[in-house]
C-alpha cells in the first residue's frame, strides 16, 4: 500500500469520526489532526459514522453555547486537498438524516464498503 513520493513514504491514513460535536472535544481535536496531516502529503481519508455524522450536519448554531461553531471548517478541507470524505449510509439512516442534511460534499458508502475501506488503510485513527 506504500509508495515512494518525492523521497518520502505516502501512507493511507483514515481519520474516523464517531462522536457528535460539542459534547466532548474529540470532534474538534480530530479535525485539527486532519488539518495538520495535510501538511505531510499523505493519502488522507476522513470518515464519519455513528454519531460522527452529526459533525457535518447543516445549520449548526452554537451562539447560545458560547462555543465556537467549527462546522464551516469541514468545508475548508477541499482547499487543503483533503477530498476523500466518506459517510456511512446506515449511520445517516439510523438518525433520520440524508446526504442533503450534510454541509460538505461526501461519498456515502454502506457499512460493508466502509469496513472494506478501513481494511485498506495503513493507519486508522478513531475517536
Amino acid at each position: 500500500m506504500e509508495e515512494e513520493f518525492e523521497g518520502g513514504i505516502v501512507k493511507k491514513f483514515m481519520f474516523v469520526n464517531r462522536k457528535a460535536p460539542y459534547g466532548t472535544v474529540y470532534a474538534l481535536e480530530v479535525l485539527e489532526m486532519v488539518l495538520i496531516s495535510a501538511a505531510f502529503d499523505q493519502d488522507v481519508h476522513v470518515a464519519f459514522l455513528d454519531d460522527g455524522v452529526y459533525q457535518i450536519k447543516k445549520g449548526q448554531d452554537t451562539k447560545d453555547l458560547g462555543h465556537k461553531n467549527f462546522s464551516p471548517t469541514y468545508r475548508a478541507l477541499e482547499g487543503y486537498d483533503i477530498e476523500k470524505l466518506f459517510v456511512e449510509r446506515e449511520s445517516l439512516e439510523e438518525r433520520g438524516l440524508s446526504e442533503a442534511d450534510l454541509l460538505v460534499d461526501v461519498e456515502v458508502v454502506s457499512r460493508a464498503e466502509m469496513a472494506k475501506l478501513m481494511g485498506e488503510m495503513d493507519v486508522v485513527m478513531t475517536a
Binding site: R18, L49, D50, R111, M114, A115, K116, M118, G119
Partner: peptide, 10 residues
C-alpha cells in the same frame, strides 16, 4: 464502540 467495531471488522 464494540457494536460499531464488530460491524466494521473484516
Amino acid at each position: 464502540n464494540l457494536q460499531s467495531c464488530l460491524g466494521h471488522a473484516q
